[in-house]
């Protein structure tokens, strides 16, 4: 068992910006840089709190600003999408084109929080699939039947489920065995021995390390993986190699 395998992980979810109802560590540019230093991380995927809780499309600029500012630290942007709506967003395909030009590595959606049906984003899913950009979504934002529908209709679109909690293994199991394009990250992946259970069932390549800095205490995921029952090679796989395979721009 080598301590070296606990460095170089890629944090597949950070949310920059203030949270209005939690006492959490800060997530501005300097705080994210300090987070990368403290845990010897190789990079991170950053979305904007403003995109979730204030201005979905406008907030993307805050994610990109962090990504550009910390590009040399391996930080990438994750943009947020909502349905094309007059006055808010002209075109989902144009949004994805702009994201690709900006070096964005993934998209996030919040159907429940933003009040729309996931089917209204079919153009987004198609554009992401074409451009090999993953779709990220919190478990609470999307019903399991809707996830199943998207994963079936867009089988080459990687879908990363986040914030699973500890009560959803029955649903997660069905999603993972039913769709090879469904993944889960470690943000609040809180089921007892859940990580070890997935690995024992040959699903190690579906797990992504992520802390959820900004919405969760990062210590949860750090200790969860470092002191897991996984062997060193699997820790490395979950810590960084899966992200490198899934996200364009993740450094070796």
């Amino acid at each position: 068992m080598s301590d070296d395998v606990t460095s170089g992980w890629f944090d597949a979810r950070i949310v920059t910006g203030a949270h209005p109802a939690s006492l959490l560590p800060p997530t501005d540019r300097d705080a994210i840089a300090a987070h990368l230093d403290r845990y010897a991380l190789s990079g991170a995927l950053v979305s904007a709190m403003a995109s979730w809780l204030h201005d979905p499309i406008g907030g993307n600029a805050e994610a990109s600003a962090i990504a550009h500012d910390l590009a040399d630290r391996g930080v990438l942007a994750c943009w947020t999408a909502v349905p094309a709506t007059s006055g808010e967003l002209d075109s989902l395909t144009a949004l994805v084109d702009r994201a690709v030009d900006d070096g964005v590595a993934a998209f996030r959606i919040h159907p429940a929080s933003h009040g729309f049906s996931p089917a209204l984003l079919n153009d987004l899913y198609a554009a992401l699939q074409t451009n090999r950009l993953p779709l990220c979504v919190d478990a609470a934002e999307l019903s399991w039947p809707d996830l199943n529908t998207i994963a079936t209709r867009f089988p080459e679109l990687p879908i990363v489920v986040s914030n699973l909690g500890y009560r959803k293994l029955r649903e997660l199991w069905a999603a993972l065995v039913g769709h090879t394009n469904v993944f889960v990250d470690l943000v609040d992946f809180a089921a007892h021995q859940g990580v070890e259970w997935l690995v024992a069932n040959d699903l190690a390549d579906r797990l992504l390390f992520a802390t959820g800095l900004g919405v969760r205490d990062p210590g949860e995921s750090i200790v969860r993986l470092a002191w897991s029952g996984l062997d060193d090679a699997t820790v490395r796989l979950v810590g960084s190699e899966n992200a490198r395979r899934l996200l364009q721009g993740v450094r070796a």
């Binding site: 301590d3 395998v5 845990y39 010897a40 859940g194 820790v235």
Partner: peptide, 27 residues
């Protein structure tokens, strides 16, 4: 870098044991 070896001695005063109907608990 946190390493794979915990540096502290711990007593856990809040734990359970066994299954729970509302959700699946492995092992």
């Amino acid at each position: 870098m946190i390493g794979r070896r915990p540096p502290h001695r711990i007593v856990d005063v809040h734990a359970h044991l066994g299954p729970y109907s509302l959700f699946f608990i492995p092992e």
